[in-house]
Design a protein around this nucleic acid. Structure first.
Lengths: 351, 351
DNA sequence: AATACGAATGTGCACGTGCACATTCGTATT
DNA sequence: AATACGAATGTGCACGTGCACATTCGTATT
């Protein structure tokens, strides 16, 4: 079971290592009959290059840039950082270096400025959380023009750049099925709340709501009532907005929070004490969300696997850049249904 | 940002590479002051060995044995094979070879015979699905005696050998919570069916039922009625046994199938047509189970992540054997809640 | 002072590959 | 026939490490 090496091929085909090397990499001229002999030796002996030796010999450094929101500003992005770090540890020995660029999620200017910095130093690959639509589209054009391998995470955009992340429409449908399980009544209302910048600008949030409607719509009578709360950090504002939503003629039995910021809504609900208990579905395993899941204030969290997202995005790039194994498929990761009874298994090691 | 090598350490400490090597690996005598100088150079320069170069230089082959049931006999084990293969692909370049041993899941003799074959050829590590209790315990004693790094998968045993797999008790509790969501009534019955060798010999099945009882027991009145169907491949037998369970005074609203063989029970239920619709919870994403999930005959599948189990078990062994990073923790993997609306994302790439 | 011996230290090669540079060889040109 | 030149092929080194073997050096023994 000894490993087949270039030297074996060379001996078998009666040439030197250099000639085999030229055939393997298509560089330099090789006489047709010699090339044929080498190719059949490669096939017959079942030669597969030793990636370990190749990496050592090339001794190259590959730079991959990661452009995401500042993780100290929004804890969700710490998952992304962790996923990137996980991938980095796996591929550091192959000479891969990760260069992060963080922008202010409230400031398109900072996004543009970080984009500028990133594109000034050239990198072999880019992982991109495309937060601002216009700015992102022009960045993508630039990337396509320069032909830099890239993966989008978290937010899917209409472009030729592959996306790694959740299928938002399907996330909405899944929430629909879960509300179905949680709410026995058939013609209730479901409140859909987006905490953060207006949902209309974020295509993935629109898709979630469409998915929810699609699941509930046809044969169920649940009515969807929607609310955006931009000033989600202002607790009083959140509470008064939610109070209006939950009273004023509405008596929703379900509350769907479209992003990871559920934990901003729960205290408001606790103060409001709606007349009928609210079934709450949110996203992502932030520490505070988990606390509310355990206390019963949140019924279900849908885990969009942000860590896996980021990890896979980096690994796909490394496969493409370092190992020349190109996989440009857009890939939707599983969405885990997290309940009180299985949340403890989604600890740091497994999410 | 150049990599720090042994040569750098040697120059920094004014010695040769060989002496640094001796300090790094604790072989041979080194003068105390020299050792001190080398150690501080290692620390100051932040030396980290290049695994790539080490692997190439050592040029060793590590053999890991995998002992599991014949996967053509029970499709569940094909997941394990896939997980092993996934790990293998990751570590093949590090000289790791996997040697599988398959036994007949109905025959302790074949298990013992495969154990014998495995222990005759010595391997650096073992992944073990411990199906037969007595035989497995004596195998574990032998393994401990010979001090071979080992991981148990699928079935947890009381021993010092770490386990990688589901927490069965918690799987039962999770099923309990799901029945709670599915069944609005509070004092119904839940039928627990084990298809295959008697559940009493399989500790992980006992644990699942205990978990279910523990969740349902205290403040809910659901009554658990239990049934083992050993001859699960005999469709008529399954049907008559199920008929008796579902009639004869009982009107369970929930059916919990404790292993991956749900798909043997569904046709029986379809023929029986119980008076009140049955909420069915089963395990694992076998093709047929998925079909029944999509058709609505199964409500929830709990995915025990058998692929990840096997993959992680092999990778933990490789870490221990090849990279000297020992992690002997028993590790419970996440259990995914699979519904019709998220099943499609648990495709081959992500389970 | 010569010798022996073990502790301490140094050197050279191998792992398999990629790549720069060197060499060979055949044919066209003078 | 000598020369030139480009195509075809070969050689040597580097990547960083581990390990076998070689060398140096100090001290005890004669």
């Amino acid at each position: 079971m000894k490993r087949v090496t270039i030297k074996d091929i060379a001996e078998h085909a009666q040439v030197s290592r250099g000639t085999v090397d030229r055939v393997l990499h298509g560089r330099g001229k090789v006489a047709p009959d010699v090339e044929k002999a080498i190719r059949s030796a490669i096939k017959d002996l079942g030669y597969r290059p030793n990636i370990i030796a190749r990496t050592l010999a090339q001794n190259r450094v590959y730079k991959i840039s990661v452009l995401i929101p500042e993780p100290t500003q929004d804890p969700f992005w710490q998952f992304t950082v962790r996923g990137v770090e996980r991938a980095r540890a796996q591929v550091a020995d192959y000479g891969v270096r990760i260069q992060p660029y963080y922008f202010d999620v409230r400031s398109p200017e900072s996004y543009v400025s970080q984009v500028g910095q990133m594109m000034d130093e050239d990198s072999e690959g880019i992982v991109l959380a495309a937060e601002f639509y216009q700015e992102s589209m022009s960045l993508l054009r630039l990337i396509e023009q320069r032909d830099i391998p890239t993966r989008l995470v978290n937010t899917e955009l209409q472009s030729s750049v592959p996306f790694i992340g959740p299928n938002s429409f399907q996330a909405g449908r899944l929430a629909g099925q879960l509300f179905d399980m949680l709410i026995p009544q058939l013609d209730s209302q479901i409140a859909v709340v987006t905490l953060g910048p207006s949902s209309l600008n974020a295509h993935h949030i629109v898709s979630k709501v469409e998915g929810l409607s699609a699941y509930l719509g046809p044969d169920r009578a649940h009515q969807i009532i929607q609310l955006d709360i931009e000033e989600f950090e202002n607790q009083n504002y959140v509470e008064s907005a939610m109070r209006e939503l939950l009273n004023s003629g509405n008596t929703p039995l379900g509350l769907f929070i479209t992003n990871s910021r559920s934990y901003y809504a729960i205290p408001a609900i606790q103060n409001i004490r709606p007349p009928r208990p609210l079934n709450v579905i949110g996203f992502d395993l932030l520490t505070k969300n988990i606390e509310y899941l355990k206390s019963g204030d949140i019924d279900v969290l849908i885990n969009q696997n942000p860590i896996q997202q980021a990890e896979l995005a980096v690994l796909r790039l490394v496969d493409e850049i370092v190992f020349k194994k190109v996989d440009r498929r857009t890939t939707y990761l599983p969405m885990d249904v997290i309940l009180r009874e299985n949340v403890d298994f989604y600890n740091e090691d497994f999410r």
